[in-house]
Write a protein that binds this DNA or RNA. Sequence first.
DNA 1: TCGTGTCTTTACCAAATGGTAAAAATTGCC
DNA 2: GGCAATTTTTACCATTTGGTAAAGACACGA
Lengths: 205, 205
Amino acid sequence: MPDGADKKPSRIQQRNRRLILDAALDVFSKHGYRGATLDQIAVAAGLSKPNILYYFDGKEEIHVTLLNQLMETWLDPLVTLDPDGDPLQEILGYVQRKLDMARDLPRESRLFAGEILQGAPRMAPHLVADLQPLFDEKCAVIGAWMDKGALATVDPRHLIFSIWATTQHYADFDAQVQVLLRDDPECHGGAAKYLATMFTKLLSP
Amino acid sequence: MPDGADKKPSRIQQRNRRLILDAALDVFSKHGYRGATLDQIAVAAGLSKPNILYYFDGKEEIHVTLLNQLMETWLDPLVTLDPDGDPLQEILGYVQRKLDMARDLPRESRLFAGEILQGAPRMAPHLVADLQPLFDEKCAVIGAWMDKGALATVDPRHLIFSIWATTQHYADFDAQVQVLLRDDPECHGGAAKYLATMFTKLLSP
DNA sequence: TCGTGTCTTTACCAAATGGTAAAAATTGCC
DNA sequence: GGCAATTTTTACCATTTGGTAAAGACACGA
């Protein structure tokens, strides 16, 4: 049995755990935690429900595993922000990376959004342990850039919030965006251009 | 029975329907559609479950009623945008109204966000019928202001998206914001100042 | 090829949940 | 007060859902 932190997982274990997690990401991001059912996940993964419970202790463990994996991916673009780079280019690069993630990983974005929307019941510890230190660190970096006169002075915390909000919006509110833009194929490009303009004007010293 | 579009609703009917809708707003915004149960709504409303089903045909009807009512409130700040006002002041006023709504009506914001996040299964018709025409109209107004030279030229559609995203973020991602700002009581004021700066710099011609 | 450990299926179950029927209580009008 | 209409409760029900037990299929090294 694959319980606990055993030795090397077999090929089959690796393959099936990945199948399950991918299916679960689909289902959880589409219906939320309570809206998702093990049966849906099982069908999407091409496995039987009891077989899923052979690999995971329960619905909650699948969700938590997904959230844990997501945290790393999610924080990565902010980790990459280089204190020694050109301030404005670093910020604009960060915006672009987040926007690309909204396009390339919409399921992850929605999974995260759904979790936070409901008060982060399963993620609060991660927010405090992983996100908060990183957030504080990068706020300090940006603050130093502003003190140096390399960027216009604004509250770095709200600056980061506005970057998150404007980029993730295109994944989380996709249903609305698609209606209002009538499936404009240039949506992503238009957003990139708009956001680059906005943050350039905001931050140019 | 209060079914159908009958005559005047009695005092009791008005009171209880409002109790139910208020309780349902609490529960739906906290747990999402599928995560909410009629029992939770009943307890929150101080009524029995069958009694709830005396006033509404079912869980879905409660949700849809809530969504319908919400649409009006939600669109109002954009309706108020006055084509004859001062362009920059009109936009900044709109931002401020949306930000105030995020503070004063967080449940409504989350209910809306949850619905869109899941693909707007019960709201797509409303988006097309109500939101889209208003959106197009106001995009034209803003576009005319830009053509006139009263505002810097950017894509009005993405401008509106960024206003929605940045303001609603404080309601929808409140769990995250509270962690990162450590319950800063000046959060709302700080956000208001930051957003006013951002959109002023973006749009000043 | 045999046997051991890994994986999968079949057949269930208890709890939760949306919903109903009908009796009982209450309200409001004459 | 009396009575019809409205409102509320009690007692259910069918389905869904997360989860389990145990038997069966399978892989693979000796």
